[in-house]
Design a protein around this nucleic acid. Structure first.
Lengths: 248, 248
DNA sequence: CCGTCATTCTGGTCTATACCAGATGAGCGG
DNA sequence: CCGCTCATCTGGTATAGACCAGAATGACGG
């Protein structure tokens, strides 16, 4: 085996690269060349290992690379699939997930997982400016694109500013509800985002293994009078979106 | 060992979690509790494996989880280190890396790796609106925080708009140079960013292994007359920054 | 026709071991 | 005192196996 690798080295300038990177590149080329269209299942790890003359462990290293690059994703114990193009998302402007997804020719689904009246804790207090113990409505939703769950979110709504908010149907667009029912125009937004791993409540909700790479996005929205309206915490699968904003 | 795990299951609701996640949590707690301050080196993988009664492979799984969460980072063949807090970065507004880093009590370093006059290729043409084959100046820099390389960038400057730009010292702030020397006020920015893995030219420049998680940020800036000025491509280590922007 | 169940496939977790290559630091020789 | 060499540390790569648990499938029985 070692001898075989060395021989390939002389033929191919990239040959000195580690085996798992060469496996990665071979698979990446197959994807690039369109041999494996989006959402296609890859051959199983055992078969890939055999095809590339190596073991499952090394094959999994190669697959992890492609996953980190956002080229493939996994579906729990079902296999590895080719990632479709990223959703273009402008968190400063996009009010409706559904409209945005539809506009890009994809099929959106929103599921409301839970609606819970609760109280402001220390973290919420610093984010919203409300006092600890104030009432707040927590809404947890999952969003899908083309049948794949890609994001879970926690939304915290200010019941003082939005009386009766907990009685509405949250499967429709929240922003339309705010505008039409409460005449809220969101003026000020504070947005924060950073890459991180998705751990347990979120990973489980999305049906991925703990530690899958994600993007955390949070938005704090206020009305024209600077009154806190809603705080949004989004956990995206890292390969599913591309943030794009324009200034000026 | 299996029996022992099963027994813990009954005692502890978390006990059913896989071993590598329990190792992860134990290490995470040590970091959280301040036993391991930022930039401290963790014990070696072999020692950690022994301490937690497992093998290096499983230990590395736990470390990879913490790395994905941005809690630890690795320095090539030197060991694993606790991540310092993320740099707060506003790509819509921050003109100077150095000023921003200094303002957060950290020590910035900028290194110019290469300055190359070149020509607009297909990708640059679509991004900038210039024609393929137009002259353009490529500048490659590496940036450090507290001695750790955290980002490499490719900057493409329009020599038509910025005559003589290739003769300047690029270790100072580019934005100040543009404003003071060319009276450029950047008006329009198109920003795009998404999480991805850092692969070879970037991974090598940052001294990390290929496949390390990163954040790709690109900015295309124009002047008040909508004339293309500069395009910026940034490759950040994913655990080093937190994007924050305000709107309205 | 529709559920049920067992088989089979998948990735998920884990052990034990080996060798390699870069980084480091101690010690030696100039 | 400086610079070099070399042993020793680190993580990086790789093999060969094993068992588990969830998902999918197809046969079977109602």
């Amino acid at each position: 085996m070692v001898g075989k690798q060395k021989m390939e080295d002389r033929v191919n300038g990239e040959g000195s690269a580690p085996l798992y990177l060469r496996v990665r590149d071979r698979l990446a080329n197959q994807i690039q060349d369109g041999l494996l269209p989006p959402n296609t299942r890859l051959p199983s790890e055992r078969i890939l290992a055999e095809e590339h003359g190596t073991t499952r462990v090394t094959t999994r290293l190669a697959l992890a690379q492609l996953e980190a690059e956002g080229r493939i994703y996994r579906s729990n114990r079902r296999g590895w699939f080719v990632s479709p193009p990223r959703l273009v998302y402008n968190p400063t402007r996009d009010y409706s997930f559904s409209d945005n997804v539809s506009a890009q020719g994809r099929v959106p689904v929103t599921e409301t997982l839970r609606v819970t009246p609760t109280e402001v804790d220390a973290w919420l207090a610093t984010m919203t400016g409300l006092a600890i113990g104030d009432p707040i409505v927590r809404l947890r939703r999952r969003r899908q694109i083309d049948g794949r769950p890609v994001m879970v979110e926690n939304i915290y709504l200010n019941p003082k500013r939005l009386p009766g908010i907990d009685t509405f149907d949250f499967n429709r667009s929240l922003w339309k509800l705010l505008r039409e029912h409460y005449s809220v125009e969101l003026e000020r937004k504070q947005i924060e985002m950073f890459p991180t791993a998705l751990v347990d409540p979120q990973a489980e909700a999305l049906g991925v293994t703990a530690g899958t790479a994600g993007l955390y996005v949070t938005r704090c929205c206020r009305d024209a009078q600077d009154c806190f309206v809603e705080l949004d915490e989004e956990f995206w699968l890292h390969d599913t979106l591309s943030i794009q904003v324009s200034v000026g």
